[in-house]
Amino acid sequence: MNVFRLAGDLTHLLSLVVLLLKIVATKSCRGVSAKTQELYAIVFVTRYLDLLFSFVSLYNSVMKVVFLGSAFSIVYFMRYHKVVRHTYDRELDTFRSSFLVAGSMVLALLINSKYTFFEVLWTFSIYLEAVAILPQLVMLQRTGNIDNLTGNYVFLLGMYRGLYILNWIYRYSTERRYWQMIVWVSGIIQTALYADFFYYYLKCWNENRTLVIP
């Protein structure tokens, strides 16, 4: 555990707190993509299957349970909560996320480090996480004025990915035998997807006006 990894995990956690806060406090999920949230739920389930058979640390296990719980809570609110579900902008959330799932599965079957059931599912979760933000980014473009909490949620998610890259650089330069090419390439692609969003987020923040993605 290094400071970049810890900061990354805490930023990830904070992003989920911000999103849940928005949904619970405003009783609205306006501007939030249910497709992205469902993809994250799939990502966490397929990656954290190892909760059942491998133990790394109490920290890791608790975080995995928290991420799983928050992902399913968010999906529950957006799809089933009697008030919140009516605020979901279905017509703005049109990204074909099934293509992302299918594409990630095909890639995981083709490129993995061990051809076993759990390894392929784990690799699938890495590929799917890399692209899971796409429906949300597309939806932001269509939403017009983006509220603070939604904008901050996406910003924190992007920060978390950036901090993970710093964590990998730190680990690669300090640990022997540390190498995870699939994770690195996917993670760099994932972070790059936020570049456009970051540009407009910082620009609008600098000009002190409401976030709009042109």
């Binding site: 491998s54 790394v56 890791n60 991420f67 784990w122 540390y178 190498w179 699939i182 994770v183």
Partner: peptide, 10 residues
């Protein structure tokens, strides 16, 4: 020789 991946990250 490198380990493939440690799976100790989230």
């Amino acid at each position: 020789v490198h380990h493939t991946h440690a799976k100790d990250e989230l």
